[in-house]
Amino acid sequence: MRGFPLLNLLIVIAFFALAWFPLQHLTGQSESSDPLQTQQQAAPVQAAEGFSFRIISSHPLKNVYLDYLGKRLLTVQDPGNEAEIERVINGITIAEQEIEFWIEAELKSAPKSGERPVIQLEMIREGLENRPTSVNVWGQEGESRIETNAIIFRPAI
C-alpha cells in the first residue's frame, strides 16, 4: 500500500514465511526431522499378521531360539520328543521380502565326529498354509551348538 513502506515490507515477509515452511516440509530438508523417522513414515504400513514356524532338526534339541531384527521372536526349551517343533506367533509385522532371522540352538548331545547338525526352519503365513518357505542352516562338525543367520523369503501369494 502506498505511503506505508513498513507495512508493505511486513506483508511481503509474511507472504514468504507462509510459503517457506510448507516448502521446507515437502523437500524433507527440515533440520528438526529425524531421517530414520521420515524413512519409516514413508514406507508402506504393513499390518500385523500370524505366522507359523516349523523347526526340524537332524539331532534332538535341548533348546532353540529365533530372533528377528535383534528381538526374541521364539523360545523353545526342552521340547522333549517333538520331532518337529511347530509354534504359531500372532500379531507380528514382517514387511521384508528377504527376511533374516538369527537362530541359536543347543543339541541334547554333540554329533559324532565328522557329522554336521542341520536345522530346517519353515515359515508359514496365516492364510497361505499351502505356500511354506524354508531354509536349512548347518552347524559345525561335532559341535552341539548352532548359531547362525537364516535368510528366508516371505511367503507370497
Binding site: G70, E96, E98, E100, E147, T148, N149, I151
Partner: peptide, 18 residues
C-alpha cells in the same frame, strides 16, 4: 575368526535386509 564371524552376523541381523 569363526567366533568373530558369528558375532558379526548376529549384530548385522539387527539391520533389515532391505
Amino acid at each position: 575368526l569363526d567366533k568373530l564371524e558369528t558375532w558379526a552376523k548376529r549384530e548385522i541381523s539387527k539391520i533389515p535386509r532391505s
